[in-house]
């Protein structure tokens, strides 16, 4: 229980929700799926702004893009027909490894990004798919990157309203290592590859739960661009990941262990894509 909560709001528009939040940021919190907020046990939270009724729970196509409401549940997202049309089985399989069925019925796409959780499997996959955010604040609606959102100071953070996926012919793979799928990842790797026949035209290689926030490993991406997707290239990527790994230790694992796992998973994810596509 959040013992000091005095007010619980259920606004019906994005604007109303943001204004309520902005009135007293220090003591307010947005409620998406609730799994993060409920576990905060924070005594400073006095006002909950529940986003359930603001109309952010749909998935639609706009031009070639997939526009996903921030309040769409992880489980609904992975099983959605439009998502499967655009991404095949990638999100269906990758997100089956996220927490448990119960948690996936609660946690939302937007709520997975907003708290900047280092171990978020969802965020790692969204970065690999180059997803962008529609956010709302005093300036109105804007389209920004996840990186831009994360670098916005807390006092100015906008409300995430949608996640936008641009269809662009990439192939994907996701790898996660944890004590169980229920547990948070010790390391996770999400890769998006654009192939011209068997040549890697572009690569997005994301390593998360290092235990820091998922980031793209640009040295590895540059190192394999233009190469043929085969065992040799996968080994090159493995070595580059190992050499350029930046991570830390915590109760789950040491930095050295994560470094080893990350490099192996990058190699395996690349070979998985080769298996799938070529």
């Amino acid at each position: 229980m959040l013992a000091n909560v005095k007010e619980y709001f259920k606004p019906t528009t994005v604007q109303e929700a943001f204004e309520l939040f902005n009135e007293d940021r220090a003591h307010s919190v947005f409620l998406a799926g609730g799994t993060t907020v409920a576990l905060m046990k924070s005594s400073s939270i006095e006002r909950i702004i529940d986003l359930e009724n603001v109309g952010l729970n749909t998935i639609s196509e706009k031009d070639d893009n997939l526009v996903v409401g921030a309040m769409v549940k992880i489980e609904d997202f992975r099983k959605n027909e439009l998502v499967r049309k655009h991404y095949g089985d990638f999100f269906f399989n990758a997100f089956s490894k996220v927490a448990s069925w119960q948690l996936r019925n609660m946690a939302t796409i937007g709520g997975s990004i907003a708290p900047k959780l280092g171990w978020s499997d969802v965020t790692a996959c969204l970065i690999a798919s180059d997803a962008r955010l529609i956010v709302y604040d005093e300036q109105g609606f804007r389209n920004i990157s996840i990186d831009e959102f994360n670098h916005t100071p807390k006092a100015e953070k906008p409300l995430i309203t949608n996640v936008v996926f641009t269809g662009n012919g990439y192939s994907y793979s996701f790898k996660k290592f944890s004590k169980s799928t229920f547990d948070i990842a010790i390391i996770n790797v999400a890769i998006g590859l654009k192939l011209q026949r068997d040549i890697i035209e572009d690569a997005r290689i994301v390593v998360g739960s290092r235990p820091h926030f998922p980031v793209r490993f640009s040295v590895v991406e540059k190192g394999i661009r233009g190469l043929k997707l085969d065992n040799t290239t996968a080994s090159i990527a493995r070595n580059l990941t190992y050499e350029n790994f930046e991570g830390g230790s915590n109760l789950l694992a040491s930095a050295e262990y994560r470094q080893h796992l990350a490099s192996i998973f990058v190699e395996r994810a690349l070979l998985d894509i080769r298996e799938m596509v070529l």
Partner: peptide, 13 residues
Amino acid sequence: GKPILSCTTFAAR
């Protein structure tokens, strides 16, 4: 009809 965890679901929700 969907399973959720009541320990982390706000009653008001």
